[in-house]
């Protein structure tokens, strides 16, 4: 509002002295308003930590650190232990990373180092589109396409060939940790790919030219580029990890939602995000709700740290290449 006033004064026939004061005042107001907006983002994050800590205090006081190691989740008895959920979150995320990392790096290398520009641009767009598809849509697809596919073809095959491993025991029913990991992998692939592409593009062309001039093949040149970009690639992977940990809908619909710790990837599991999505609206009793909010707080803190780490790793590459220019 006050900006408008200043504008009116400006366009009027003021003498220059008054105009100058208005300009200085305008600048000052402008700066204050924008700074307040910027401060708001810090206030939001601080409020999130404060509110979620306060709302989960009941559970924090009751269980302490035992919350993280407790294996029982029994709302009726009032026992709340987060370990099965932490396990499910970590295993599904790691599984997703194991699948998504090599593929994403492969896609990024192809798009940046090998494909002709005309092909690379539309292909990059299509890969990015994968990230635009909502989580609930992946969930739907996973229930009706991925799970039957795994149940009928993939899991029986794995059982026959690698069934002696503890990971492939139990009944193959499609819904479970393996499907969860695969759907997460599909969802984080475009994210990891995008960052790796940026990182590869930041490596100076001179390095490639030098390698090629020395007689290196395309792939050998790529290896040198990758070696130079490795902390950025690590950042991309960590970023993917953060996404996989926090992904909710798709995994809730496919992982089976049973709070059990089982080595077998065929068995159902449960993640932190899923238990919040499933049980939040039906949480009766303060302690139950408090325990679920503590889950939210854990998710917040873990992803905040993971993402911060990813950002630092990616930044370090940007700095490196800026120096070498």
């Amino acid at each position: 509002m006050s900006n408008n006033q200043d504008e009116n004064n400006l366009t009027g026939s003021n003498i220059s002295g008054e105009k100058r004061t208005n300009n200085i005042l305008g600048d000052r107001i402008f700066r204050i308003v924008l700074t307040l907006c910027a401060t708001l983002i810090l206030v939001i994050v601080a409020a999130m930590i404060a509110v979620m800590t306060q709302s989960s205090w009941l559970s924090i006081k009751e269980f302490g650190f035992g919350f993280l190691t407790g294996q029982n989740w029994d709302p009726i008895k009032g026992e709340f232990g987060a370990l099965p959920f932490i396990y499910g979150t970590l295993v599904s995320a790691i599984l997703a990373l194991l699948i998504a990392t090599p593929i994403s790096v492969g896609v990024a290398v192809f798009l940046v180092e090998q494909a002709p520009k005309k092909l690379a641009r539309p292909m990059a767009f299509l890969v990015e589109l994968l990230a635009a598809i909502p989580s609930v849509v992946y969930g739907l697809w996973a229930i009706f396409v991925l799970a039957p596919l795994l149940r009928v073809y993939v899991q029986p095959f794995l059982q026959q060939t690698l069934g002696f491993l503890p990971f492939f025991k139990g009944t193959a029913n499609g819904i479970g940790m393996m499907s969860g990991g695969i759907i997460l992998a599909i969802m984080i692939t475009p994210i990891i790919t995008a960052v790796v592409r940026d990182v590869l593009e930041a490596v100076p062309v001179t390095q490639r030219e030098a390698a090629l001039a020395l007689g290196a093949t395309r792939w050998e040149t790529t290896k040198i580029v990758l070696a130079n970009a490795n902390s950025g690639i690590a950042g991309a992977i960590v970023l993917g990890l953060g996404r996989a940990i926090g992904e909710t809908m798709a995994i809730t619909m496919i992982i089976g939602n049973r709070p059990e710790i089982s080595l077998s990837l065929f068995d159902p599991g449960y993640t932190i995000a899923s238990v919040i999505a499933n049980e939040f609206t039906e949480a009766t009793g303060d302690l139950y709700l408090s325990a679920l909010i503590e889950m939210g707080l854990i998710l917040f803190l873990v992803t905040f740290i993971v993402n911060g780490l990813a950002k630092l790793l990616i930044l370090s590459v940007a700095r490196q290449t800026a120096q070498s220019h």
Binding site: I41, M48, G246, F280, L292, F300, K311
Partner: peptide, 18 residues
């Protein structure tokens, strides 16, 4: 930047409490 990576469900939990 870090907030971009915070799972959306956490925002839901926060708004639920507030």
């Amino acid at each position: 930047d870090t907030m971009i990576g915070i799972p959306s469900i956490v925002f839901g939990v926060f708004v639920y409490a507030v």
